[in-house]
Simulated scan of single mutants.
Amino acid sequence: MILYFSKPEFYIPDPSQPESSPKLEFTTPLFRRRLSQLTKMIVQVVHDVTETTGIKNAKQVFISKRGDIGREFSINEQLINDEEILPAGFSLSVFNTPIAQATLACSLKSGYSVIFPSKGNLYQALQAALAPVICKDEKEMLIAYGDEYIQEEYGSLRPEDNRAMAFAVIASSEKKEGWKPLELKELKALSPEEILEKLK
């Protein structure tokens, strides 16, 4: 089945500043004050794709291989040091926070879900995310993917592809002028970077 994809909006930090993040100038300083790199990137790309397409009523699906690794690190550090996790630290899930903050920043009210791709298989995650569009239960779906830079404290556990990136795209079952037609299987076995290039 052919789906139609909007022009993807993306954020990839300069390699010389791998921990940099968008400035989010369309939000208030209070809103963006304590957001992680991943959350800032997702807020930015979701904002950009909803602005460029004018579509703000599509449900959102957030996909991430690692989630908010900085938040996870701080939770683990607290567990090691204090042998407990305070509710305030745990209340912001490492996977729900980025897309939840994007919905707040962009005033999106259609609802969101989060998918963790098993063994990093982004294609399977996309299949699950786009199933409602393929089945025509939903006309459109906003897909946001992102992973942030893994800090040096992880040492040798950091993967070789330790590069932050995020992109957002809207997929539709209906043909739209200027949108790219693709069969989902064309994205099989591709890395996030390759998928982004395919969608451009």
Rank of each mutant, 00 (worst) to 15 (best):
L130I: 01
R158S: 01
L92N: 15
S36M: 08
A102L: 10
W179N: 10
L187N: 04
P87F: 06
S20L: 04
K185G: 03
I63A: 02
F10G: 00
Q44P: 00
S6W: 00
L184P: 03
I134S: 06
E140V: 07
E140G: 02
Y123F: 15
H47P: 04
P18W: 04
F167R: 03
F95V: 09
L24K: 09
G146D: 11
T28M: 10
A88G: 11
K7W: 02
N121H: 02
R32A: 09
E51T: 05
K185C: 07
S16P: 00
Y123G: 09
I85C: 08
K23E: 14
E19F: 09
C106S: 15
L122S: 03
S6Y: 00
L130E: 03
E77P: 00
Q17V: 07
L157T: 02
T50F: 01
V114A: 00
Y145L: 14
L79Y: 12
K188P: 02
S91A: 12
A102P: 04
G146R: 09
T39V: 08
Q124K: 14
I55F: 03
E72G: 11
F31K: 06
K56D: 03
Q17I: 08
T52R: 09
I150M: 05
S173F: 07
S16K: 15
F116C: 06
A189C: 07
F90P: 01
T39K: 00
D68Y: 06
E138G: 05
P22Y: 05
V49G: 01
K188D: 12
K200L: 13
Q60P: 00
D14C: 13
L196G: 00
G146I: 10
Q37R: 02
I69K: 04
Q37W: 03
T50S: 12
M1N: 12
A125T: 02
Q101F: 13
I42W: 01
